[in-house]
Simulated scan of single mutants.
Amino acid sequence: MTEVFLSLQGETSRAGLPTVFVRLSGCPLRCRWCDTTYSFQSGEAVPLTTLLARVAEYGVPTVCVTGGEPLAQKNCLPLLAALCDAGYSVSLETSGALDVSRVDPRVSRIVDIKAPESGEEARNRWENLVHLTPRDEIKFVLANRADYEWACEVIRARKLTQVCPILFSPVQGELSPTQLADWILADRLPVRMQVQLHKILWGSTPGK
């Protein structure tokens, strides 16, 4: 585990909700714009009971398990199940490169689809799409117009609007949020535009 902290959820349909974040260590991907590289090597081994106790100290009902890539750790699955058993509303942020089929069905899976500019397009595990339900969400992080058009084609070809809600995020410092919003409106695209609320409030401070 890298860290446990309380913040406002900055993304997804849960944006703005007070949330306990459990950040697990390690990730097999190296997306070009990753903002949590400090989680790649750091961390400590923590017993499940200790971790659950840390989460409970914050006294909020919403928990997000993130990384790095949390599914890279085999004990992520029992952690997710234990959080659900404890009565939390749980979401999982995953790169989309690893199998999501064994994640507890009570968990809302936020699955990235890596666009070309990420440098990790080849790691997309397309088989994950058949396991998603309306309680899950698909996220595209986009750096430019080419990424946007690629994402639009993926949505069309794979009929993703029939699967679950879709999120579009601009890469901070590379694609203007206003520009992305204009493209979405011009194309009448049925996606949720999002910015990283936590960065607007606190910048890039770790643990926020």
Rank of each mutant, 00 (worst) to 15 (best):
E120L: 08
G59N: 01
R32K: 14
Q196T: 01
V195G: 10
S204Y: 12
S169A: 12
Q41S: 14
C84Y: 00
R54W: 14
L80G: 03
Q9L: 01
I138S: 08
D136Q: 10
K114Q: 14
R54E: 13
R125P: 03
E174G: 00
R32D: 10
C27D: 02
S95A: 15
R106E: 12
H198L: 05
L129H: 05
N124A: 04
T49K: 15
P116V: 12
L129V: 07
H198T: 07
W150H: 08
R135M: 07
L98A: 09
V103T: 05
A181F: 08
E120P: 04
Q179W: 10
P134G: 06
A86H: 02
A45M: 11
L197F: 05
I200P: 00
C152S: 08
D187W: 11
L180Y: 06
P105L: 12
S169V: 05
E120G: 03
A45E: 13
L51Q: 10
P116W: 11
C76A: 15
I166M: 03
G43P: 07
L71R: 15
P105I: 12
I138C: 09
S13V: 12
E121G: 02
L80H: 06
L51Y: 10
S39T: 15
W126V: 04
L167R: 07
Q73A: 15
A143K: 02
V111S: 00
L8I: 13
V22A: 06
K139P: 02
I138T: 08
I155W: 06
E69S: 08
Y88M: 05
I166G: 04
E127G: 14
C84W: 00
L51M: 11
I113C: 01
V107C: 08
S108P: 05
G207Q: 09
Q196G: 03
A186R: 13
V171C: 03
N128K: 11
V46K: 03
V65T: 09
P165V: 02
V154F: 01
R106N: 10
L92V: 12
A181D: 13
S118P: 09
L6Y: 04
P18D: 12
